[in-house]
Write a protein that binds this DNA or RNA. Structure first.
Length: 423
DNA sequence: TCTGGGGTCCTAGGACCC
DNA sequence: TCTGGGGTCCTAGGACCC
């Protein structure tokens, strides 16, 4: 029984989102920055010449000015909404879909063996572009890893029109011989170094490497990658999103922070956001930890530490998280450092219904707590984030991250809708 | 001045038990 | 005196992904 996978990947996704609502950006070098306006995380084709992926933008100020590169702070509200639109279009092609990241999805095309896959890929591409304005590339293959390879080929060679199928392709080995091992899904920096120092440079060479070597040096994970290159599918489509086992919330500060008070505000905000995420998946957590970091890129004394503890019982009640996180932070905090980042992690997560029986017998009014949480989540969902929030999260937030070049929330906020000119 | 954030999986090795 | 061997659980750290 053969399988067929398609990988649909949005081209320069964040940049494409910005362009949908501001067509004047078309054909120009555009860059979207990470939180705090730090690194370039999405670049248009035109910008790639000057700005490497992940580069700190402040190191490229000259290029930005010289080539008039348009820079944007990241606007996740907009990108998440556009992502949902793209995914819902893909869903119309097959319900057998795995949303792999904000800009990528795997589709199972089992049963499509006799169709012209190239043509089908083009139909997907055209439909997504027409209905959402987002350009995508489509790669098709016998396994997810081969679909990834095909997608890469589609992206690298614009003359293919954004679609490439390696499925049953008689030239498969020739294509694999031109793919660098570092470009294979699952092969990162460390494995690239290992493979190249053993004379394995291309995907074809990895495909033909002895199992014993791969298993010993790259664990079963690497072995699965090799099998997938050979056409044996080992990594299945995951239709339902698995529940998170850990939830981490953290941010760098816009400015260095010295005071415990400000750190307490930031930690309080992270704890309440982590709680929101936890409740979204109807779970409770038993373990919480807090971490604190100075700026590793700066000279001066460094401090990097974390502390965690078990909660008296599994919970999703934000005030419990805030209280415990503050206690941990108070123990963690040392005066005299320039702090750059703080975060809160929830772990030992399980579904809330798995513990409900026990909770009925606790002394606390759990039902009442949950009603409060539900009400707050509901209000914040309808009226926007932080309509209701905890006073301990601060009002002025001097530590908040920088977002100096953010575009409007075109699709999710009535006050920021795009305006069409009446002639 | 300015360097992202959020995850998962696997293994090795220590602690401990019988 | 003899200091084995099998097993589980936990944690830290390394690898990867977008």
């Amino acid at each position: 029984m053969s399988r067929i996978y398609a990988l649909v990947d949005c081209n320069s996704f964040y940049v494409s989102c910005e362009r949908v609502f501001d067509p004047s950006l078309e054909g120009k070098p555009v860059v979207v920055l990470s939180n705090n306006d730090g690194c370039a995380v999405s670049r248009s084709t035109e910008a790639k010449k000057w700005i490497p992926m992940g580069a700190p933008i402040h190191k490229h100020t000259k290029d930005v000015i010289l080539h008039d590169i348009k820079c944007f702070s990241s606007n996740y509200t907009l990108y998440s909404d556009m992502s949902a639109r793209v995914m819902s279009v893909l869903n119309k092609f097959t319900p057998d879909i795995e949303i792999y990241s904000i800009d990528e999805a795997f589709l199972s095309l089992k049963g499509f063996e006799r169709r012209d896959l190239q043509e089908y890929g083009e139909e997907i591409r055209k439909t997504v572009l027409k209905w959402t304005g987002i350009p995508v590339s489509v790669g098709i293959g016998e396994t997810k890893t081969l679909a990834k390879v095909a997608n890469r080929v589609a992206k690298k060679m614009p003359e293919l029109g954004g679609v490439f199928s390696i499925y049953n392709n008689p030239k498969r080995d020739e294509i694999l011989s031109r793919i660098d091992v570092s470009d294979i899904w699952g092969i990162g920096r460390a494995y690239t170094r290992l493979l190249k120092s053993n004379g394995i440079y291309s995907a074809l060479e990895l495909k033909n490497t002895a199992d014993t070597f791969i298993r010993k040096r790259m664990t079963v994970v690497g072995y699965r990658t090799a099998l997938e290159l050979r056409g044996t599918s080992c990594i299945e489509i995951e239709n339902v999103e698995p529940e998170k086992k850990e939830i981490l919330r953290s941010r760098s500060f816009g400015h260095d922070v010295f005071e415990l008070n400000e750190l307490r505000e930031a930690v309080s905000m992270h704890a309440s956001r982590a709680g929101e995420k936890l409740r979204q998946q109807n779970s409770v957590a038993r373990y919480i930890s807090v971490f604190l970091k100075t700026n590793k890129y700066k000279d001066g004394p460094q401090y990097n530490n974390s502390m965690g503890t078990y909660l008296p019982e599994p919970t999703s009640y934000t005030p419990d998280f805030i209280k415990t996180a503050h206690m941990l932070l108070d123990n963690l905090y040392k005066p005299g450092y320039r702090y750059k980042k703080a975060g809160v992690m929830l772990a030992e997560i399980c579904p809330d219904n798995a513990v409900q029986l026990n909770l009925f017998y606790t002394s606390r009014n759990l039902a009442g707590h949950m009603e409060i949480m539900d009400a707050m989540d509901e209000i914040n969902m309808v009226w926007g984030r932080d309509t209701i929030k905890y006073a301990s999260s601060g009002i002025k937030k001097p530590w908040a991250m920088k977002r100096n070049m953010v575009s409007p929330r075109y699709t999710t906020n009535w006050n920021e809708l795009p305006i069409t000119k009446a002639s």
